[in-house]
């Protein structure tokens, strides 16, 4: 049951999630293999973020099973903290700890959860900060960094736990347009190094160039799924085509 064992990294079967009366996910089946980069696209409210947040149990599924690295996280007695140490997550709003320095952001969980020594945790943190190009800002406060830099620190923070899977929840949606590139570049490097990644995104160029597979989520179900060139280049479904038109050509939308 170790992370290196063959077999899917994520296996989702029949996943449902409701918020009160509203059913956000209506039967999702999804398998992600080692080293795969899966991009999830879809309209606002289609359930993309909820799907991602169910995988590390930030949202509790209503029905269905999710297996992460062989462990069933939908089991009520799962040691979810243990699973989460192997699953990195990057949020739209960065969520860096504002009362800690950049370096401390990357060492806190290493020290508290993995019980690494201060020296070891700092070495790992510095290695990952270097990876995202921010080693020189280790002693800065998060608030002193630009949005793009903060998001790169958030990626380094997640990587410092040596995760086997990375979840990205619209990582560039809160960024100024000129800062999007630096974050996508880090994510591309990560993908090229073989990291298994699930990315909720509106960056169609990233999905096309970096993604191994694209999933179009519509109203809580996977409507279309396949290689990026097919889903983004020649979508079969009418609703996928309409969505891509809205995203790629936003000034020619009939408001009706």
């Amino acid at each position: 049951m170790s992370a290196s064992a063959p077999g899917p990294v994520v296996e989702i079967a029949g996943l449902h999630k409701s918020f009160g009366e509203r059913e956000v996910l209506r039967g999702i089946d999804l398998t992600v293999h080692q080293g795969e980069v899966v991009c999830i696209i879809g309209a606002s409210g289609s359930g993309k973020s909820t799907l991602l947040r169910c995988i590390n149990l930030l949202e509790q599924p209503t029905a269905g099973t999710i297996r992460v690295l062989g462990t069933e996280v939908t089991d009520p007695d799962v040691d979810i903290d243990k699973v989460r140490t192997h699953v990195g997550m990057v949020f739209q709003q960065f969520n860096l700890f504002p009362h800690r320095s950049v370096l401390e952001n990357c060492t806190l969980a290493q020290r508290q959860v993995l019980h690494r020594s201060k020296a070891e945790a700092e070495a790992v943190a510095m290695k990952n900060l270097e990876h995202v190009g921010l080693a020189d800002r280790a002693n800065s406060a998060p608030g002193q960094l630009s949005g793009g830099q903060q998001q790169r620190v958030a990626i380094a923070r997640a990587l410092s736990m040596d995760p086997a899977l990375m979840l990205f929840d619209e990582p560039t949606s809160a960024l100024d347009p000129e800062l999007v590139g630096e974050v996508l570049a880090v994510m591309r490097t990560l993908a090229e190094e073989g990291m298994t990644m699930l990315v909720v995104t509106h960056e169609m160029i990233f999905a096309r160039e970096v993604g191994d597979r694209v999933i179009f989520l519509d109203d809580g179900v996977v409507l279309e799924e396949g290689p990026p060139d097919q889903v983004l280049g020649a979508p079969r479904e009418e609703r996928t085509q309409a969505f891509l038109r809205r995203v790629l050509d936003p000034t020619h939308i009939d408001p009706a």
Binding site: N56, L58, D81, K82, R84, F91, N95, F97, L108, R157
Partner: peptide, 18 residues
């Protein structure tokens, strides 16, 4: 304290108490 702070910490595997 913003909810995202708790989510970030928990997603790193930190316990509720930590």
């Amino acid at each position: 304290v913003p909810k995202g702070q708790v989510e970030a910490a928990r997603s790193l595997g930190m316990s509720a108490r930590s």
